[in-house]
């Protein structure tokens, strides 16, 4: 049924287009602004080099939801996600992407990264400086639901990693710390965008934890006057991976265009557009040029948790540590 729906959707998206080659990029929510800038730039480059006018279509939504649409038959040429586990799911469940996708491009196929930052009200009235300020009584923390949102999962892991790195830190202490953080969460929104709305529009909470590039979106949407970005002492490196959907490009004959599309993300132009959208670039030259907007933050990767797939299993799957924490909080 969903396959049929997806097919109809693709058909509806694809019919009015009369270009030589059409690419569909299935992406997650907050990448909208980046690809709005990147797609025309790439199309121009591609036309100049290969004499082929490309039409690039975008589909946005929650990262896991988008991956599910691809598994169910949405004919994406490329997927650009915020978690490698979403692409792994397409490899395992839908088998549309061949294993080893993360070896085909540099940086484990993640052209840029982001990290979790703390967004506080103007003037920082609660004096929030670091992760340990989130557990103070009377501080309300806005985080999207780790069960339904990659953004929320990164926040959970960032807080856990912070606690581990404190003197005498261990798993038991980290678990207690994360429990204390989530005790201060009054609303669990389904996704990152909804959490932003709760914090900015409904004015609920003292601190919003979200991706660094989402902070820039808030500034564009709500103005720079209403909030401040606080960089914690340490945060998690959120790699944002991309992959070609092998089954679809081989069927449609768009492999070359799709591969070029992703490769160009690492070009100086692609990296610069990323930096302009507050995504941390891989290119050292571009990173140096935009150093002012990316304060250095000590980062740890998801390998701290044995990779995202393992973290998902241990922490976020049903009955995992997050569920136990939620149960413990509800009992109080």
């Amino acid at each position: 049924m969903s396959r049929l729906l997806a097919a109809l959707l693709t058909l509806a998206l694809a019919t009015p287009v009369l270009a030589d080659t059409t690419l569909l990029n299935v992406s997650y929510d907050v990448m909208r602004d980046f690809y709005k800038d990147y797609n025309p730039a790439f199309a121009k480059y591609y036309d100049a080099r290969f004499k082929d006018k490309l039409t690039i279509q975008q589909s946005h939504g929650g990262s896991s939801k988008q991956a599910r649409a691809v598994i169910d038959g949405l004919e994406a040429d490329v997927v650009t996600m915020n978690q490698s586990t979403d692409i792994d799911a397409i490899v395992e469940k839908g088998k549309q992407i061949n294993p080893g996708w993360d070896k085909k491009l540099p940086n484990e196929a993640a052209p840029f990264s982001s990290l979790q930052v703390l967004i506080v009200r103007k003037g920082n009235p609660k004096g929030i400086k670091d992760w340990n300020d989130l557990v103070k009584p009377g501080v309300q923390v806005i985080v999207p639901n780790p069960k339904t949102s990659g953004n929320g999962r990164y926040t959970y892991l960032a807080a856990w990693g912070y606690a581990l790195k404190q003197a005498g830190g261990n798993d038991a202490k980290a678990r207690q710390f994360v429990t204390d953080v989530f005790k201060n969460v009054p609303v669990l929104d389904a996704g990152g965008r909804a959490a932003t709305t709760t914090f900015m529009q409904r004015q609920i909470g003292d601190v919003l934890v979200t991706f660094e590039n989402e902070a820039e979106m808030i500034a564009r949407e709500f103005g720079r006057g209403g909030f401040e970005v606080v960089y914690p002492s340490v945060s998690i490196d959120a790699d944002l991976p991309v992959a070609v959907v092998d089954k679809v490009v081989d069927k449609k004959g768009t492999r070359k265009a799709a591969e070029e599309y992703l490769k160009y993300l690492w070009s100086p132009e692609g990296q610069e557009i990323a930096a302009q959208n507050y995504l941390r670039p891989r290119d050292a030259g571009i990173a140096a040029k935009y150093a002012k907007q990316f304060p250095p933050v000590k980062l740890f990767g998801v390998n701290e948790f044995g990779g995202l797939a393992k973290a998902q299993k241990v922490h976020f799957d049903d009955g995992g540590i997050y569920d136990q924490i939620a149960a413990a909080i509800a009992k109080k």
Partner: peptide, 8 residues
């Protein structure tokens, strides 16, 4: 929905 998010 949250089960679906876990591909369950």
């Amino acid at each position: 929905i949250s089960k679906l998010e876990q591909y369950d």
